[in-house]
Amino acid sequence: MCPTILMPLVDFLRRTEVPWIPPNDGALSECISAAVQERPRIAHGGPTYTQVVKLPKDYQGLAGSLADFSRRHDWGSEYGGRNALMYLIGELVHNVYDHSDSSNSYLMAHRDDWGKDVELAVFDDGVTMAGSLRKSGIVVEDDVLAIAMAMNGLSSKGEGRRGYGLRSNVRMCVQGLRGSVLAVSGGGAIEFCAFEEGRDDVQEGYELNDNVYRLAGTLASVRIPFQKKGVNIYDFA
């Protein structure tokens, strides 16, 4: 089960305490249990289900947590290198602390040896992108537009110097690493995928109109194909 699905699920289970039936897969069951109970995973053989990392409330402990996380993923040696991986995670997580006003936030990555890619996601239960913009006096019509404007560099912090983090991450993932980015926030979602050479990259938006589908927070997920070559993040920063 990929981080994109798992992290909002874990947050829902933890928040609502609704009874749940564990999946047959022991490793996946342990992964979900550990995340819901906020404890370290017991090591388990089988597919590479990694731990859902709860981000610390205090930003001062964050760098160490992210370093431990990255070390478990071999410092991104197959995903563009350490600098790219820490830049990617760092900017995604930074946005959580800076904008979300969340109570809980999580980070997870899952390496897929069959699909030859890694999926990495950050989830928070905060005010959503539109909510963050509204708090700073920027009224955006809907959640899809809020996500698009955030990806284009609009920041709730207002000054012209801000807003480059998410934008540079999206560019690096899609144009640099030829991967894909999915951002879901409240009632909106945008997916931006690299396509094969010679064809335009694909951008699609989704309105999650029914309350059943609305996300109580923001999820930013990237999928990056394995690659030996490092990426020069400065081309996208």
């Binding site: 698009a148 934008r167 999206v170 951008q203 938006g205 309105e207």
Partner: peptide, 10 residues
Amino acid sequence: VIDIEKLKIT
């Protein structure tokens, strides 16, 4: 980065 004018929304 996102072409808002051309964004197809489902």
